[in-house]
Nucleic acid binder design. Sequence first.
DNA 1: ATATAAATAT
DNA 2: GATATTTATA
Length: 298
Amino acid sequence: MDEELVSKNNCQDDNDEDRVQEWETGLPTTSDLTPLSHHLISPELASAFSITAEPFQTMLDVNRASQNTLSNLRRHNSGFSSNNFKSLSSFMEDRCLDPEPIVVDEEEEDEEEGEEEVDLGDKRKIQSVECIEEADSALRMENLNDDCSARALKRPRLVWTPQLHKRFVEVVAHLGIDNAVPKTIMQLMNVEGLTRENVASHLQKYRLYLKRINEGKSSNDQLFASAPVPQSLRESSGNRNLPPASVPYGAPAPSMPAAGTSHGMPVGSYTGFDYHPYSMNREHQGNWPGNYVNLHVG
DNA sequence: ATATAAATAT
DNA sequence: GATATTTATA
């Protein structure tokens, strides 16, 4: 008897999904919308009425706001059919022409020590975070540089989406382990907003992962074991072109996580490096907010 | 899983 | 001695 109910619900979901899709297709694309840089009133008028203009918003801000909205929605509808969100997420994925690496504001992570202090005098340097926009940018350039550099200081926690990680792996493979150092990796990944320390941190984990794999091998293999990346992709010296979008990996011994090969999840998702059978990881359920996307590769 | 600090290396 | 990399902690 439950089945009937379930199928009914499914129908309902399908209907909803259709309608949402219909709704989505009717929406204007980003290019149709008023540019973020466009001011609704002229500066003169604004100052005449002592209206202070809102700080310039980049796509990053917009995306972040959208993420917050989504996560809030999700929180308030805990049992809600995730289809709707998937739909929404894909919507964002489709529409955002200026993708950013997904970041997430830390919230539930600050259990210990309630001292976080507002960041002041932070020596964190924003190395030429180009707020790229190939389009007409002459005007906003000035605003952008102020605002971006100022805003970039806070930098929420980076989430290594499958896409990002894939890119990372590709670049590392392309460089070869000798040249794969944080700065170079970062540059070749060419992902806006990605910092060197982001990469360094990830690289540390990745190396540990590689080590684990190689330890599992017989000592005989140990010689070549240092390179679980196909030789076709390895280059010892200069950087040529990046590997073509999807790399045909020859034989990743224990499934390489470059594409999603994890646990029960939909293909394409990625919760970390899966250490084959025995993983020291648990707590794998909760954290996958469903916001992926936004790899912007150059 | 990430970020950051501390220790080294260029 | 600044800047980048690696390692250790938070």
